[in-house]
Nucleic acid binder design. Structure first.
Lengths: 358, 358
DNA sequence: CTGAAAGCGCTTACAG
DNA sequence: CTGAAAGCGCTTACAG
């Protein structure tokens, strides 16, 4: 494999000049440059990032660690759309001429130290630490010396992090429902210990308050268990309870629950959306677009979160964080309106066909 | 940051001895070893993979390239479960003490050369090239000099590849349906130009032949378009046509289509599975487990394919491919049986509750 | 605008 | 079982 010396010799210059042409770190005479470029092409020269890293002490590598990519699914379903998170991060990192190294804990927390060791051997310049769902985490103490941004999680030490705006997402959804003529809005929530649960319920209340509508607490029921065992039984009962409070729309904690609710409502002979509107959360397109009718859902903005996190990390590394920049950032997202929600009031503007609003 | 020299000095040995302790490439006296290990710990020593790579000329890096992770979704839905593929590959590669570098073409083919350049700069030892669906590809000529294994795709040059056994998967599904008392089995297929379509239809026919059942060709209809536009209209018509042939079960080209069929059948007042059984393909658990009733589906074994591909690549790199090893390997998978399929014949053993068979 | 020398931190090749 | 010397392929620091 050709080295910088081979190129230098072929072009009749010094290695340092070849280096200058590659890196553009100093002016090079046009003719010299062309000779070098020709030599590089002729020799099929590919610079060695190992040599570059060793000498410059900068690897150009960013590590992303996640148990998300492959949880064991014992307690949680695969959070597959988090791959959008990878995608968003990679775009930003690629633009900064760096490379993303991805490590997967396979859902086994005890593998994380090994993965971090690999990152260290590769001298990563910073780390993106991704959680499979919005939660609090505790970082291994060994991570304290590296620039790090948490994604979809936060810690007590106020490590910089990027979070979804769960409160705002549910607010936007419920606000939109009210604007479409709904007044009795049921909410089948996540298990109460989940961070997202409290935030979204708060958004649900804020939307009601803003429109001066009193909340009937019977409309809010837990619709999912921490473990998926007997999930359908629980959901069936929760659905029973909210139906007694006579809602016109049922908000579900996520799209998977909405999918189950579709089945249960149809078993009861309830037509969607004519007799009951349904909404989800996450906007997993694999689900939302293929359900019939299409599912209205609050977007969980994974790609944007990944991009924002990468951005923040690069600024941490570059030492260019803005003065008043908060450690915790929340990413907002619109609602994807589809046909599962009926606009009830004929006087309300027809907003109902596949449109997004913020 | 501590170097091997710092460790050597602290332990009172030569750098080469430290190297031997780390790599286990030669016997080291027990006492010496302990002194070295203690010094490494005390100095918080982390070896530099850049230095190691440069001197040894082996990077320990495997590149995975995929447009899959982030297609633009113009023509195809996100093939998100392919993340299982990453997971399967990473497990095997991690076991070989190597590190996986993942690059994402973002669905833009013109970005691939840049990504490959990055891989080359990092001196990857081999490449896994992943397609978003079972298809033929043409590799860039520049890839000819690197060990490479295609995953979910193949090329005319017979590059080693790992493919799903689509024929066998559909055979297993239809065979299982027949054993459960179904004789009139509808099949809503993929668009005909798709590689998987022909293979699966062949599996459908083989299962019928094996049981001596003549195939009514009206039962086979194309249920999806290459582009998702007007997909529901097409599916509605295709469903109409197969229903006229009076099936007892409808096989769908994939789980997403099955999800749409659930909705359409229910609009017609057809109960699943009491009046009509339904089966899918892919076993996307995010869909199959949350539909009501749970969807029977042929498994698309992404994790196994990733692992097999990594395995094959490592053998290519190590020069330890078996003598008669074929270039193309097909990965078989079972069917995940769930409640969407009714066992029709009371005399048939009850096989019907959430079991897997090969 | 260009170059000569040194060094990043390991492992190789050799010697004992 | 252990070590001294050299070199992997770049960029740094300096000089002109």
């Amino acid at each position: 494999m050709a080295t910088i010396y081979d190129v230098a010799k072929a072009a009749g210059v010094s290695p340092k000049t070849v280096s200058r042409v590659m890196n553009g770190d100093a002016p090079v005479n046009q003719a010299t440059r062309e000779a070098v470029e020709q030599a590089m092409l002729a020799l099929n020269y590919v610079p060695s990032s190992a040599a570059r890293t060793m000498r410059s002490q900068r690897s150009g590598l960013i590590g992303m660690i996640t148990g998300a990519i492959s949880t064991t699914h014992q307690f949680e379903d695969a959070g597959l759309p988090e791959i959008y998170l990878v995608q968003g991060a990679q775009r930003v990192i690629g633009q900064s001429n760096r490379t993303l190294l991805i490590a997967d804990s396979g859902g086994q927390a005890d593998r994380i130290p090994t993965l971090l060791q690999t990152f260290r051997e590769h001298r990563v310049e910073g780390i993106l630490y991704v959680a499979e769902y919005h939660r609090e985490v505790t970082l291994p103490a060994s991570l304290r010396d590296l620039p790090i941004v948490l994604v979809n999680c936060f810690d007590a030490a106020e490590t910089p992090c990027i979070l979804p705006d769960d409160e705002g997402g549910q607010f936007t959804l419920v606000d939109g429902l009210i604007r479409r003529g709904h007044q009795r809005i049921a909410y089948l929530t996540l298990p109460e210990h989940q961070v997202a649960c409290g935030l979204r319920v708060a958004g649900y209340h804020r939307a009601h308050a803003q429109h001066g509508i009193a909340v009937d607490e019977r409309l809010i029921q837990v619709g999912a268990l921490p473990s998926p065992t007997h999930e359908f039984d629980l959901l069936w009962d929760a659905l029973d309870r909210v139906l007694k409070a006579e809602p016109t729309v049922i908000c579900c904690a996520n799209d998977k629950m909405a999918m189950r609710v579709y089945g249960l409502l149809r078993d009861r002979g309830v037509a969607i959306p004519q007799q009951m509107s349904v909404a989800g959360y996450d906007d997993y397109r694999m689900i939302a677009e293929h359900l019939h009718p299409g599912l209205t859902s609050a977007v969980l903005p994974y790609a944007a979160m990944g991009a924002r996190a990468a951005d923040k990390l690069l600024r941490l590394i570059g030492g260019s964080t803005k003065p008043g920049e908060p450690n915790r950032e929340h990413v907002s997202a619109p609602v994807a309106w589809r046909d599962s929600v009926l606009t009830r009031d004929a006087n309300v503007t027809q907003l109902n066909s596949r449109r997004r609003e913020t």
